[in-house]
Amino acid sequence: MPNDTILAAEDISHTYTGPGGDLPTLESVTLELSRESFVCLVGPSGCGKSTLLRILAGLLRPTTGQVRLEAQPITQPQRRIGIVFQKANLMPWRTVYSNLSLPLELARMPASEQEERTTAMLELTGLTGFADVYPAALSGGMAQRVAIGRALIHDPEVLLLDEPFGQLDALTREQMSGELLRIWARHRKTVLMVTHSIPEAVLLADRVLVMSPRPGRIICDLPVPLPRPRSLDLLHRPDFVALTERLRRSIHPA
């Protein structure tokens, strides 16, 4: 395990067992996330991406293998790892403000510091005017911004994102990628993000991992040597297009 590795999966396999029989979902997955790197994970749907993320977050036990956060094996969820799901997953009875502050409340942070951080996070996510709004009144993009803010607010070192923009329309999605780049530039976290979109992966990531159909294995590990800071302008550059083509070919060989 190289020194700058923060989160590592070591030879993870996973099988769902149920009354209908066993379903192998992951097969000896090994990966290492370097500190402050942005890694994207792509793969056909149903190949086990969400399962892998849940295992990395400590929400699910692998059948074999183990996950390490720095040197410690992970056996249960950790505040040092933040997670954002496909659905914004907000509490409908809490306002935007108190949805954001939930992790701080649970960590029993002093009230003044909670307020300071929540106000800062409202600003970072561009939600200042919506502090007292309930989630039912938010658009999909805004709700997902709250979810990302909530995952960042207690300053976890690793952020796991499971298709966070999967339910958004194409335009909002592109805009959200831009926002995520901006937020990540401010708060350098180690990010592992599952996405369906190849251009999104290339735009955001330092490295793109490709998974095979179920049972998922990592079949390609493609570095993205595009310069940072990046913006949506990148989408039309020839080296960007060339990288998306390479990635597409590794997902659909032949």
């Binding site: 849940r54 977050a57 400590g58 929400l59 969820p77 950790q78 505040r79 790892i81 933040g82 997670i83 799901f85 659905k87 997953n89 509490m91 939930l102 992790p103 649970l106 960590a107 207690h154």
Partner: peptide
């Protein structure tokens, strides 16, 4: 109760 919200509470070490 949505299982995703339970996961969230779990992930936040509630």
């Amino acid at each position: 109760i949505a299982p995703e919200l339970r996961d969230l509470m779990h992930a936040l070490e509630a």
